[in-house]
Nucleic acid binder design. Structure first.
Length: 288
DNA sequence: ACTCAGGTATTAC
DNA sequence: GTAATACCTGAG
């Protein structure tokens, strides 16, 4: 594989920091100059913004244009989405102004499943560290510009890994969950390919929930952030609870919205774009 | 030393 | 069904 370059000029709704730091992915790292390098599938790519251009350089499995367009969701009209969401209320408008460059990546389903199982009751630096060690130990090495990068291990590559080995990599109590889920997928108790072609989101969600370590929040993150791309789901974590309570609940007393109430509220207010709304609100509340 | 972090699974009303 | 509780680990 040899290096390829791709460029998009004058992009709208495209800011590196917003995309990579909004909490959806774990394998993109900033360089000193504000550019990022990351790995997905068998692709290693460096992205930088120069004037009004985004320049992608790296080694990719297929044509870089095709890989980038798919992964960065370039064929979706985020300007239109933002316009629609911003018209809902001023809270959304504010959060969208803050995270105007967000795009929801099309991440590999398998990698997303494992990543968010690992994310449970964990913090981002450690999540990233665990995923990196998993990849170094069981993924394939890709060398580029004198550095080594490691692909995220496939289910097959994790086939013979024991719970103890996971524990050594620092997975903590998530070791057994990763082990069991990998096994379930290898044994086709859940069929990932079938999920992608199943338009019934609730059905797919229920299949995800059968996996070890996948509860409601993780399932929704998988639905939203993977190439399942179900933009209508609304993952509710601690930050989303905070922001929803702050914005949409008159807190005369200490009572807070229940999870059920938040779900209902999100569905009513944001409809089939709830996932996008969640992402703007989440990013804004956590970072701003 | 102790708390906390992108929740889930288990156990107990 | 809904509510407490334990759970690895390492950074602050």
């Amino acid at each position: 594989m040899k290096e390829q370059t791709y460029q998009i000029t004058n992009p709208k709704s495209f800011e590196l920091k917003d995309i990579f730091e909004c909490g959806q992915c774990f394998r993109w790292n900033p360089e000193k100059d504000g550019s990022y390098t990351g790995i997905w599938k068998n692709n290693v790519v460096h992205v930088q913004k120069e004037n009004n251009n985004i320049i992608f350089q790296g080694i990719t499995e297929n044509e870089i244009k095709q890989e980038i367009e798919n992964y960065f969701d370039l064929n979706r009209d985020y300007e239109q989405i933002k316009k629609q969401l911003a018209s809902i209320d001023n809270h959304l408008k504010t959060s969208i102004q803050y995270g105007k460059g967000i795009r929801i990546l099309n991440q590999d389903l398998w990698e997303t499943i494992l990543s968010f199982i690992i994310s449970a009751n964990n913090n981002i630096p450690r999540i990233k560290g665990i995923i990196e060690r998993l990849s170094q130990n069981y993924g394939k090495e890709i060398r580029w510009r004198g550095k080594s990068y490691y692909t995220f291990p496939t289910p097959e590559e994790l086939k013979d890994v024991t719970v103890e080995e996971y524990r050594k990599l620092g997975l903590g109590f998530r070791d057994i969950r990763v082990y069991e889920t990998t096994k379930m997928i290898l044994e086709k108790q859940v069929d990932l390919e079938q999920m992608k072609s199943n338009p019934n989101t609730l059905e797919v969600r229920n299949q995800l929930l059968t996996l070890s370590g996948v509860g409601p929040k993780v399932a929704d993150c998988i639905l939203l952030f993977s190439d399942l791309k179900r933009l209508e789901v609304f993952p509710i974590d601690v930050w989303v609870r905070r922001v929803m309570n702050d914005l949409y609940f008159q807190k005369e007393d200490e009572t807070k919205l229940s999870k059920k109430q938040i779900e209902t509220l999100a569905q009513e207010k944001f409809g089939n774009l709830a996932g996008l709304a969640q992402q703007y609100l989440f990013y804004w509340r956590r970072e701003a």
